[in-house]
């Protein structure tokens, strides 16, 4: 099991190294940034069973925080990243505490409602956020530790920083889902009533999952703010929230690698197709419908199906499982 996990991780690193040479480095950065946000949503949606339609709240809040810190205080890179992650986590703790009091559709609507609320604050509070025009003029500080200082001015260098941040986030996320928390979260997803009956305070763990996800999403928002030197109003809008849900669904929920594939497919498609055809979101819509109807495990499931057919074993007996795909099942609670 450990060996399989190691091979997967090596493949992931290889993909990350090759990525900026397959697509423009800017797109590669975007893929990594949204992959972080998507794997954060996957923790609450895929693992814990709560669909948040308000992840842009934490993405945007952190992006604005980072932007303001850099514009007004010329704050250094790592301090900004830490602050944004903290802001994402604290905001998620506050908002999440209210949201997790309800389940299902009501939970979704609460996350959406908070998202809308903060969006309108950002929209109206032009003195601070720039409103509709976004928050421009954000510098990109160098990566500096002690005497070492690396400029991140070129988009390839910035990609390097984003990619390393992504790999660290991925490793942290993997350790979270491999820890007892992973089992507890999935148990809550499967059957919250029974999880309580065996002794877990379900609300507390949901709150924890939501908070962790908010912190990761905040980190992603900080990286996003430095991409183009501007925080667009869109970064806190429901469109981003929707995009993140989209990526997780397309990639495959409840699996560590699904959201990464989803983010890559989403961003790559939008880059490649939007040049050819400006109504490209239509294609994504079709893709989502197809995934939900025929491939609920997303790209990861498509991958395993193809692999099984190539291996000659034919399709697996239960191809219709949206969650607990091999990686999720294998790495938990196994020595």
């Amino acid at each position: 099991m450990r060996r399989v996990a190691l091979i997967r991780f090596v493949l992931l690193v290889a993909a990350i190294v090759v990525l900026p040479f397959c697509v423009r480095p800017v797109v590669a950065s975007e893929i990594c940034i949204f992959a972080i946000a998507a794997m954060a949503l996957n923790l609450i949606f895929g693992y814990t069973g709560m669909l948040s339609f308000g992840q842009a709240t934490f993405f945007g809040l952190a992006a604005y925080t980072a932007g303001l810190m850099m514009i007004h205080w010329h704050a250094p890179l790592l301090a900004v990243l830490a602050a944004g992650t903290l802001v994402g986590g604290v905001a998620a703790a506050l908002i999440g505490y209210v949201c997790i009091q309800r389940v299902g559709t009501y939970f979704i609507m609460l996350t959406f409602g908070f998202n809308q609320m903060l969006y309108f604050i950002a929209y109206k509070w032009t003195a601070v956020t720039g409103g509709d025009d976004g928050l421009p003029g954000i510098p990109r500080p160098p990566f500096a530790v002690g005497p070492l200082s690396i400029s991140l001015d070129s988009s390839l260098r910035y990609y390097g920083f984003v990619a390393v941040s992504f790999l660290l986030a991925f490793y942290a996320m993997k350790r979270i889902v491999d820890s007892p928390l992973g089992v507890i979260f999935r148990a809550i997803r499967e059957n919250p009533g029974r999880a309580a009956a065996v002794g877990y305070d379900v609300k507390r763990y949901k709150w924890l999952a939501f908070t962790i996800a908010g912190a990761f999403t905040g980190g992603a928002g900080v990286l996003y703010s430095m991409m183009f030197g501007i925080v667009p109003l869109e970064s806190i809008s429901w469109i981003i929230s929707g995009d993140i849900v989209f990526m997780v669904l397309i990639g495959g929920i409840g699996n560590l690698y699904g959201p990464l594939l989803g983010a890559a497919a989403f961003k790559w498609l939008s880059e490649a197709i939007s040049v050819v055809w400006e109504r490209w979101p239509l294609i994504l819509g079709v893709a989502l419908v197809l995934v939900v109807l025929f491939l609920r495990g997303g790209l990861v499931e498509a991958f395993t199906r193809v692999r099984d057919i190539v291996a000659g074993g034919g399709p697996r007996p239960e191809p219709d499982e949206p969650v607990s795909v091999p990686d999720a099942a294998e790495s938990q609670a196994r020595p």
Binding site: R186, A187, E190, R194, S324, A329, A333
Partner: peptide, 10 residues
């Protein structure tokens, strides 16, 4: 009333 998609062990 168990956890359907978790393994028996889990």
């Amino acid at each position: 009333n168990v956890f359907p998609k978790l393994s028996v062990y889990e």
